[in-house]
Amino acid sequence: MVKFYQHTFSFEHAWDNVTYAFWLRYPNPFASHVIGCDVIDRHVDPDTGVLRTTRLIHKQGVMPRWGRHLIKNADAYIVEESEVDPKTQTMVTRTKNLNHVRVMQVEETLTFTVHPENPKWTQVKTEARIVSEMRWGLTGRVENFGITKFMDNSVRARKGMAHILERLRHNAALAGTPVAAAATTGAPLDC
């Protein structure tokens, strides 16, 4: 059995600003479970101009009481691979957990594009696949927990991005520059 999740959301911010905020989203008050984030590889494809990044994210997981005997350490390590194409104004990120994969594998794809009806906004499509290899009748229970937790975390992730976008807007206003200009000043693209 596999659980799927799909959701589309719009930020009332330009694509440049939303994709910039994505790189700055940790830390934020809605992601206290994120312990660290490291860039493993980052390069621009010389032929296409696409920025490709691989990051390792360390998160502190939460286990329900019934699942605590399944996993000794709830820390999770996630690999995130992304491609940013400035020509088509598309960013695609793919994440999946590296540990606890027999208990539950979570694969998420986010696609950031210019909103089709308002070019000043950004549309984000979230797709997730959650699968468990547990036996003894636990598969469905683990997958149901996973999809519920994923939906809750998606709401918190959107709030975290909105928080970072508001900080960018506020900082740009203080500096007297448009947010889009602030996003291209060469600030480091760290977690």
Rank of each mutant, 00 (worst) to 15 (best):
H43T: 09
V44S: 10
D45E: 12
D45I: 10
P46M: 09
P46N: 11
T48S: 15
G49I: 09
T53A: 02
T54Q: 14
T54W: 09
L56G: 02
I57M: 11
H58S: 11
H58L: 09
K59H: 08
G61R: 08
G61W: 10
G61F: 07
G61T: 14
G61P: 08
V62W: 07
M63F: 01
M63A: 12
R65T: 08
R65E: 06
W66H: 01
G67N: 00
G67Y: 00
L70Q: 00
I71N: 03
I71M: 02
K72F: 04
N73Q: 09
D75L: 05
Y77E: 06
I78K: 10
E80L: 07
S82G: 03
S82F: 00
E83A: 12
E83K: 08
E83F: 06
V84T: 12
P86A: 06
T88Y: 05
M91L: 14
M91E: 06
R94F: 05
R94K: 15
L98G: 11
R102D: 10
R102F: 01
M104E: 06
E107F: 08
E107R: 15
E108Q: 10
L110Q: 04
T111Y: 00
H115P: 09
P116C: 02
P116F: 02
P116G: 04
P116I: 05
P119Q: 11
K120Q: 15
W121Q: 11
W121E: 12
T122Q: 06
Q123R: 13
K125N: 10
A128S: 12
A128Q: 07
R129W: 04
R129S: 14
R129H: 12
S132F: 02
M134V: 01
R135S: 06
W136C: 03
W136F: 13
G137I: 00
L138H: 00
T139N: 02
R141V: 02
E143I: 00
F145E: 02
G146V: 03
G146N: 05
I147R: 09
I147M: 08
I147A: 04
T148N: 12
T148S: 14
T148E: 09
K149P: 00
M151I: 11
D152K: 12
D152M: 10
N153M: 10
S154G: 07
V155L: 04
V155Y: 05
A157C: 08
R158T: 11
K159C: 05
K159T: 01
G160D: 07
M161Q: 11
A162V: 07
H163W: 11
H163N: 12
I164W: 03
L165Q: 04
E166G: 10
R167F: 07
R167K: 15
L168G: 08
R169K: 15
R169D: 14
N171R: 12
A172F: 03
A173H: 12
L174C: 08
G176F: 08
V179L: 09
V179I: 14
A182S: 15
A182F: 11
A183Q: 09
A183D: 14
